Each structure stands twice: as C-alpha cells, then as structure tokens.
Amino acid sequence: MGNLLKKINWEKVKQFNSKYSYLVSFIGLLIFATIINPRYFSYRNLSTLMLQASIKGIITLGMSILIIAGMIDLSVGSLVALVAGLSVVVLNTTGNVWLMLLFCIIFGAILGSMNGLLVTKGKIAPFIVTLATMSAFRSVIVQLGQGGPFNVAADILPSFRMIAAGDVLGIPNLALIFAVMTVIIAVLMAKTKFGRYVYAVGSNEQAARLAGINVDQIKTLAFTITGLLTGIAAFLLTSRLTSITAPNAGQSFELDAIAAVAIGGIAMTGGRGVIAGSFFGAIMLQMIEGILIAAKIPPFLNGLVKGVIIIFTVLLQRKKNND
C-alpha cells in the first residue's frame, strides 16, 4: 500500500482535481447519496434528477456567462414569471405552440438586453440594475394577472403538457433539451470569439478595452443570451406546470442559478470556469435538495443551505487563488 501511494503522481492528481473539481464533487456527492440510499444510483432516479434540474439548469447556463464576464443577474426568477405568464396569453389567443416559443425567446432576449443596456449605457452596476428589474418584472406580471394564475386553455393543455412530460427512448424531453443547450453554450464559450472575449472581460475589463474589445457590446450580448435562455426556461416551466401563478413562479431561481454556478467551480470573481461545471452544478444542487428531503430537513431551510454553499465555495476559491 505504501509503495502504491509513492507511485502516485500527486501533482497530477492535484492538477486534475483543480481542472475537474466539478466532476470530482459530482462523483463524491453521488457516492454519498448512494450510501444513504442504495437505490439512488439507478437509471430511473438519475433521469428524474436530470428532469428536475433541467429548467433551472438552462437558466444556470446564462448565469454562467454573466458571472464569467464578471457580472450577475438577480432578475431571472421574475423574468421567468413575466415571460411565462404572458406566453400563456399568447398560447391561449393563437393556439400555436411555436408562436408561444418564439415569443418567449424574443421577449426574454429583449428583457435581457434591456438589463444589459442599463448596465453599459446607464453605467449602473449589474447588481443594482437587476435588483430593480427583479422587482419591476414581478410587479408587472402580478398586476396583469391581478394576483391570479395564468392557466393554459383546457383544449390546448394535453398536447402542450407533453412537451415537458414526454420522453425520447425513455429519456425525458427536458433532460435532452438541457443537455443540448449545455453543448451549444459550451461550444459558444470555448470555440467562438464571443466566448474568448467574455473570459477576457471577466479577467480584466480594462485590459480587454485596451486590447480593442468592445466591452459594452460583450456585456450587452451576455445579458441578451441570458434573457433568451431564461425565456426558453419560462416556456418549459409553463409546459410542465400548465398554470403560472405570478407571485410565486420562478421564485428563488436566481439564488439556485448562482449556487449551481458556484458549485460548478466557476470563479465568482469572473474570468474562469467552464460550462460543463455549471451543468454538473445544477444537477448537484438538485441532488443536495433531494438529500435534504431524505434527511427530513425542513424545506424552508433550503435557502440557508444554498447560502452556506455559495459562501463556502467562494471561500474555497479564494484559498485556491492565494495558494
């Protein structure tokens, strides 16, 4: 045993753990969950886990882009409620699911770009802008719905519900959509000029400006893409629930997205991290919620746990940077 330990290249182990910390954390959490419940590691359970993580996971992809760029969006939960509520009106009026999806994508992108323009042209900190729009978006949809729910019409409901409830070869549609969106955003961030510029802006905004990067354009695009992804999430949430309650829809989605990004190993200070980390981060966050339920922890303490996770992760990142 001692000879085996000596043969291990601990420097490479450390490098692997640093590069793929999200994967190491995922495997460790999966082992822990399996110890608690031996039936946890099953195809049915893992596909359900993906299903439950998918909608928030898509929002997490957008939040990842913003955090890598050194920004944040606190309005995504309220944006989901606003887009989802109005999209039900579009669906009930037109009876066309494709028009509803198009509305969600375009309206989400417009609201996202509005946040971006307020940050870049208004020279207001992202935290302040999105804190304000978080309140504004929620107020608008609550007022439009008079506090009541937005219900999908009964004649449209069965087929529309199958978008979220259906599956392909036993794999839930939502899980497939989440996986495909992850690949698209991962390629965008790793293989395109936009992605390289996002990392540059998040690493050192001033240096990025001096290098000729249009920082304001990159920031606005980051917010626009986040809004677009949030619009898609709103569409899928509406299909899953078929009824949107304005005061509650999307509540705390922003905290979940930030926690998933942190768990996924993306630096909260910007400039570092990979989209794959956010994918696993979203799944791990859902696993943690499941473990808390199994441990019979009161559900109203979930926020406390997520808050602790974010703080603990940031402290670990700071320690790693100091090392």
Rank of each mutant, 00 (worst) to 15 (best):
N3D: 12
N3M: 10
L5D: 02
W10K: 08
E11H: 11
V24D: 08
I31S: 02
I36Q: 12
P38K: 04
F41S: 03
T48I: 00
L51V: 06
K56A: 07
K56H: 10
I58L: 09
I58G: 05
L61F: 15
G62K: 11
M63F: 02
L66W: 05
L74Y: 06
S75M: 06
G77S: 06
V83M: 04
A84H: 06
A84R: 07
N96D: 15
W98V: 15
L101H: 11
I106R: 09
I106Y: 08
G108A: 12
G108K: 03
I110W: 09
L111Q: 02
M114A: 14
N115T: 01
K121N: 12
K123N: 13
I128S: 12
R138L: 06
R138W: 05
R138Y: 07
S139Y: 02
G148Q: 13
A153Q: 04
A154D: 15
L157R: 15
P158M: 10
R161W: 11
I163Y: 14
G166H: 08
I177G: 09
A179D: 06
T182R: 01
V183Y: 03
V183R: 08
K191C: 12
T192K: 06
K193M: 03
V198G: 06
Y199D: 08
R209T: 02
G212R: 05
D216G: 14
Q217F: 13
L221E: 09
F223W: 07
T226Q: 12
G231E: 12
F235A: 05
L236G: 04
L237Y: 11
T238Y: 09
T242A: 13
T242N: 11
I244H: 07
A246N: 03
A249W: 03
Q251S: 07
S252Y: 11
L255A: 04
A257R: 02
G265V: 01
M268Y: 07
G281R: 08
I283V: 12
Q286H: 02
I288W: 04
G290V: 11
F300S: 06
L301T: 14
L301P: 00
G303H: 10
I311Q: 08
F312Q: 09
R318Y: 15
K320I: 04
